[in-house]
Structures are given as structure tokens and as C-alpha cells.
Amino acid sequence: MSGRKLLLFIIAITAWASLIAQLVLSFGYSTTDTTETIVRFFSFFTVLTNTLVAIFASVQLVSKPNQQGFFANANTQTAITLYITIVGLVFNLVLRSLWKEGGLQALLNDLLHSVVPLLMIFYWWKYVDGKKATYKSIPFWLIYPAVYAIYTLLRGPFATWYPYPFINVIELGYPIVLRNSAILVLVFLFFSFFFVFLGKKKPV
């Protein structure tokens, strides 16, 4: 097995195992019915993005060398790396201090928010041809987080539940949530440009 395939295998196993374990724990913590528990589980940007990483790594793992496709595209790979990087940054800089759980939950938090992001960043740096990532693709990269934000803000009032405290309209009100959302937009924009810039400078 090549170094690239081995890294993809590690990423896929780590992401899938962590997601499955987190789903099992979610049922243990949940005070809602099965359907709502599952919906809430997949309402976390962390879960959606780690799932995207897991699918990407799995598809690339079984793909033939030089095979073309959606996940083989440098822009797609850079976008996925961008998303999981934001997952890691937001958790470690903003949310980590709010989590008090220990044991398995603490381990899963580290796997989903630190280990998988770092593995994906390393994969991008070593194996993705960053020179093919383009600035004109950035608006398309922002569609996924934009759709997620719209979905979350629209569903929140009906579910009386928000996945993250900084977008909890019930607790913070719309002015603060919109401000926080604007900050996140700027973060996504900054790192989008940063990854394209860095990709054009790296040797691969």
C-alpha cells in the first residue's frame, strides 16, 4: 500500500469510527425521539463535514491512480480541506472551553475536531496539486456553509434547538447571531483565499 493510500485509509477509518461512536453516544444523551436525535446529529457542521471527509477518503482509497472524478478534483479537495480546517479552528478556539465531558466523548471531540482536520490538512499538503485550485472557485466553496447556515437558522425556531451556542437565536437574539455569522463568513473567505494562495506556493 502506497503512503497516499495508507493515509487515506487512516483518515477514512478514523472519521467513520468516530462518527459511528458519536452517533451511538448521541442516542445515550438524547431526550428526544429517534428521528429527532438523528436529525440533530446531522445538524452539526462537524458531523456533516467529517462525513464528507470520510466519503472523500473512502472514494479516493478505492479509486485507481490518476482516475478523474469529483473527489479527484483539486478544487474539491481544497474545499473539503477548508471545511474541516474551519471545524477544527472553531472548536479549538471557541468551543473547547465550553465542553466539560470526559471519557469517550472527550476522545471523540479530539478525533473529530483535531485529529481528522490535521490528517486532512497533511493529506492536502502532501498529495493534492494545490496549483490547480483557483480563486474563481471560492464562491462555489461557500455554498455548502451558506446552505448549512440557512438551514440551521430556519429550523432552529421550529425545533427550539440550535447545534452551536454562537448561533442560538433563542439565547442571543438575531443581531448577535447575525454578527457571529458575518464573522464566520469572513473566516471562510480568509481561509479560502489562504488555501488557494498556499496551494500555488507548495511544491506538489
Rank of each mutant, 00 (worst) to 15 (best):
S43Y: 02
L89Q: 03
T134H: 13
A182Y: 11
L23G: 01
L61G: 04
I11Y: 02
E101R: 14
A54H: 05
I150P: 03
V24R: 10
Q22G: 05
P175K: 12
T49A: 06
R96M: 13
L93V: 12
T35S: 15
G3P: 10
K202I: 11
K136F: 08
I86D: 00
M1Y: 08
V147D: 11
T134I: 10
Y164H: 02
G102M: 13
Q60P: 03
D129G: 06
P165Q: 08
S2A: 07
T35K: 15
K136S: 14
R96E: 12
R155Q: 11
V185Q: 01
K132F: 04
P157E: 10
T85W: 07
N109T: 04
I170R: 14
F9T: 13
D110E: 15
V62A: 13
N75K: 10
L111Y: 02
A182R: 14
D33Q: 09
Y174E: 05
K200V: 11
S181H: 02
F71P: 07
F194W: 15
Q105T: 12
Q60S: 10
A12R: 02
F191D: 00
I84M: 01
A17Y: 06
T134D: 13
T85M: 05
S43I: 00
L198E: 03
Y29G: 02
S181W: 04
A57D: 01
Q105Y: 13
W125T: 06
M120K: 02
G28D: 00
L8A: 12
R179S: 10
L95G: 00
